[in-house]
Design a protein around this nucleic acid. Structure first.
Lengths: 311, 311
DNA sequence: GAAAACGCACAACCAAGGGTTGTGAGCTAA
DNA sequence: TTAGCTCACAACCCTTGGTTGTGCGTTTTC
């Protein structure tokens, strides 16, 4: 199916006849006839009944019409998503299951009029470069990693702390615990595949390990969270960390346990970053929304790396 | 923009590299390269960064990806809308502003899982033919027009009566009335453009005229409800009938008046029609929904043509 | 560190698609 | 009946989009 043919179909519907549609599209009537014939052949149905005074929709054509219009709308939005100038607000989050992702869903519910595109960049350094170049408009990241202070033209504001929770299978030694302290995790193997050295994720877990003497294995490629959960569910010796806000989409019966961590609770700090002179109207809306939904900050009983900005 | 190129784009994203995507699509790697290059040229952005181990999405590519997937989903639904076999439930309504249309919106809210296509056929005779041929699955119509009894294989059930209301401009003689009786309308000009002789609409208004001695002018082509409302608003001598459930979408300030009609209230009876052996699962859902939302039938104080089935 | 392997882009070529002009068939209206 | 209008078909041509062959650059391997 060809989008030009769909566009032609809609043009004929709006014009009422092939000739006027052809004029609207600046092609010949014969070309319109060919395009419609091709579309009808591809769909294996007749879309118009040709009369001496023009073309009228068949029943199939009537049923197809709203889908055709929707198709053109979506195509237009797709093009707009990469159009320099007035493209949708482009926001980087650290992971699709992170609290930042949840915040963006909330923002979209509150402000459906703001067109949004969510991307996931490699690390905070990439994100900052993308912010400066204008490739993205905002980024949820932990700042500021040692040795990488934020440039002058990048502003940031702390948004929330995401409490880490322990995720184990049913046969894990801690599976029955109501909650665990960080100290209790000493000696247990925590598996966090996909953490790439040099990123702020890695810096965070390096500090966590150094502070509490945990055993975190970052080995192995990331085959996706499904594969991770699968392995955790079946392996008694392994556990992993997961954001507290994450809503687990996982078949019941596997017996995955989610256990709060205390004494102190490790939290991952999310800040919103943006370029000071970015004029995107959606950016102001997003900042206002985040300021409105932010709850008071209570750092008591939590832990974050010393370099983390949490204000 | 070409849908094949979009499909190729998604295939490359899923495969991670051009070569595997080419194998998935049963074309050569060079063709994939050309398609992606063409798409990038059309969008004027780079979608992939080519590496020695495959292709990775750029930021623009990441932003474009969800739109591309949505585009393919919509295209699939568009094709499915005319696919014989398991196509969406196809329902005919008498007009986009009719009560039947509102019922279908309610059904869609209650059962979003039932794919729907709404069409508007010429008259009840066309609708019955379409029902028998399987071109549509259900139809909201007034039955049974004299001389056109329903065939044996078509079932029908009364759904609701739609009360007609008078619509006038601010300068109309009846503009200030809280309500009017049918008798009061004698001598006033009621304008109903677009009513085609031979249809059940025409039969309905013929009976209305014969019963109460109204003056209904069905002359002139139908230029759409916007043009109709425009004329009514500006012409003191004209009024029109409109379904009571219709939510007027009309700029405030024009002073259009909607006046209930009594003594008796003319109502337009809607029945649901369907072919007895139509196996579409959505049809049963629709019938059950309509039975559930139907309020009790109170014919007191209302008028409908003698031929109308209202049970 | 050289060689093999891998992945994508470019060039040349060819078939097919999609545009144009010219023309005819069919219906409507005068 | 005729003139007018609308769409479809035929012939033609250029552009598009596929293939094969090849080269360049990076990664992996011994």
């Amino acid at each position: 199916m060809d989008l030009d043919a769909v566009r032609t179909f809609v043009a004929v519907v709006d014009a009422g006849q092939f000739q006027d549609a052809a004029a609207d599209l600046s092609i010949t009537q014969q070309a319109v006839s060919k395009r419609i014939a091709g579309l009808e052949k591809a769909l294996a149905v007749r879309l118009f009944t040709r009369t001496a005074r023009g073309a009228r929709l068949t029943i199939d054509g009537q049923a197809f019409l709203p889908h055709a219009r929707e198709l053109l709308r979506v195509a237009e939005r797709a093009v707009a998503s990469v159009l320099p100038g007035s493209r949708p607000l482009r926001v980087d989050v650290i992971a699709s299951r992170s609290a930042a992702s949840g915040l963006m869903r909330g923002f979209h519910r509150a402000h459906p009029e703001v067109e949004l595109d969510v991307v996931m960049l490699f690390d905070v350094e990439t994100a900052v470069a993308a912010l400066r170049s204008g490739a993205i408009d905002a980024s949820f990241r932990a700042v500021a990693v040692p040795g990488r202070p934020l440039p002058e033209d990048i502003e940031s504001v702390w948004v929330l702390d995401e409490a880490l929770q322990l995720l184990t299978g049913p046969a894990h030694a801690l599976a029955g615990a109501r909650s665990v302290t960080v100290a209790q995790l000493t000696g247990h193997r925590i598996w966090m595949p996909g953490i790439v050295p040099g990123t702020e994720w890695a810096a965070y877990y390096d500090d966590l390990v150094a502070e509490f003497g945990l055993t975190i294995e970052a080995t192995g490629p990331n085959f996706g969270s499904d594969a991770l959960l699968d392995t955790i569910a079946d392996t008694p010796a392994l556990a992993t960390f997961m954001g507290g806000q994450t809503r687990l989409v996982w078949p019941a019966g596997h017996g995955l346990r989610r256990i709060p961590v205390t004494g102190p609770t490790p939290v991952y700090p999310h800040s919103l970053l943006w370029r000071r002179d970015n004029p995107h109207p959606g950016l102001a809306t997003l900042r206002a929304h985040l300021a409105a939904v932010a709850d008071g900050h209570d750092a008591a009983g939590t832990w974050a790396p010393g370099w983390a900005i949490r204000r």
